[in-house]
C-alpha cells in the first residue's frame, strides 16, 4: 500500500464553510492533503480565500472557492449546485463558518445576539440543508459541525457565542438521528482555545488562566484540530454518530 492509498479522504468531495482563514483554511489544506477535492465559501476575505485556494491546489487536490454567506439560502443553493455540477456530488460538509464578539451581557445588544446565533447556528442549519438534499439522494455522507468548548463546559465566553455553540451540539444530535437512515453521519468537533482562533480576542490574563488549567499547558494548534477533523469525516470513523468530541488539551 502506498502513501496515496493511506490518505484518509481519497476521492472524497468536501465543502467547508468559512474556509478563507483560521481553522477553516487549515481544514481545507489538510483535507486536500488527504486526497479530497475541497470547495469552500467565504463571506468577505477574498485575499484569504485566494491563499487557501492556492494552498489546497499545492497539495495536488482540486479546489473551488465561492463568495457566499452561510445565511444566504439562494447563494448556498447556487454554490451547492455548482459544486455538484463540477464534481457530481458532495460527500462531506464541514460547518466551520463562525464568529464571536467579546461582549459581556450588559453591552450585548439584541442585534449582536442575533448575528452570532445566525452565523454560528442558523448558518450550520442552512448549509446542512443545502447539502443534505443531494447527500440523501445519494444515500451517504458525513457532516462535521465545528462547535466549541464554550458550548459544553462552564468557561468564560460571550453568552451568545456559548449559546450558539450549544445549539450546534443540539443540531448535531438531532440531525444525526434524522439522517442516519440514509447512511449519513453527523458529528461535532468542539475545540478549546486555539492559536489564531476566536479565543485570541481574550485579554492576556484570561488566556494565561486558561492555559494554567489545561493539562497539556498550552492552547491547541489549527493543524491538530484539522487532522482530527479529517479522521472524523473519514470512512474509518464509520460508527461514531451524533457525538460531540472535545479537543481541549485536558481542561
Amino acid at each position: 500500500m502506498n502513501a496515496r492509498d493511506r490518505r484518509l479522504l481519497e476521492g472524497k468531495r468536501v465543502l467547508v464553510t468559512g474556509g478563507s482563514r483560521g481553522l477553516g483554511s487549515a481544514i481545507c489544506k489538510e483535507f486536500g492533503s488527504q486526497g479530497a477535492s475541497v470547495a469552500f465559501n467565504y463571506s468577505n476575505d477574498a485575499e484569504g480565500a485566494a491563499k487557501t485556494l492556492a494552498a489546497v491546489e499545492a497539495t495536488g487536490a482540486r479546489a473551488l472557492a465561492f463568495r457566499a454567506s452561510v445565511l444566504d439560502e439562494a447563494a448556498l443553493a447556487s454554490m451547492v449546485k455548482d459544486i455538484e455540477g463540477a464534481w457530481e456530488g458532495i460527500d462531506i460538509l464541514v460547518n466551520n463558518a463562525g464568529m464571536s464578539q467579546p461582549l459581556p451581557l450588559p453591552l450585548m445588544e439584541p442585534s449582536d445576539w442575533d448575528l452570532v446565533m445566525d452565523v454560528n447556528a442558523k448558518g450550520s442549519f442552512l448549509a446542512a440543508r443545502a447539502v443534505l438534499r443531494g447527500m440523501i439522494r445519494r444515500r451517504g455522507g458525513a457532516i462535521l459541525n465545528i462547535g466549541s468548548l464554550a458550548g459544553i463546559r462552564l468557561i468564560e465566553a460571550p453568552a451568545h457565542y456559548a449559546a450558539s455553540k450549544a445549539a450546534v451540539k443540539g443540531l448535531t444530535q438531532s440531525l444525526a438521528k434524522e439522517v442516519a437512515r440514509y447512511n449519513i453521519r453527523v458529528n461535532c468537533l468542539a475545540p478549546g482555545l486555539l492559536e489564531d482562533g476566536v479565543g485570541q480576542s481574550l485579554p492576556e490574563h484570561r488566556l494565561e488562566e486558561y492555559v494554567r488549567h489545561t493539562a497539556l499547558g498550552r492552547v491547541g494548534t489549527l493543524a491538530e484540530v484539522a487532522a482530527f477533523a479529517a479522521f472524523l469525516v473519514s470512512a474509518r470513523n464509520s460508527y461514531m454518530n451524533g457525538e460531540t468530541i472535545l479537543m481541549d488539551g485536558g481542561l
Binding site: L132, R133, I136, R137, E178, R181, Y182
Partner: peptide, 9 residues
C-alpha cells in the same frame, strides 16, 4: 421521489 419528502422522513 426525494426521500425527505415522505411520510416516513
Amino acid at each position: 421521489d426525494h426521500p425527505w419528502f415522505t411520510w416516513s422522513h
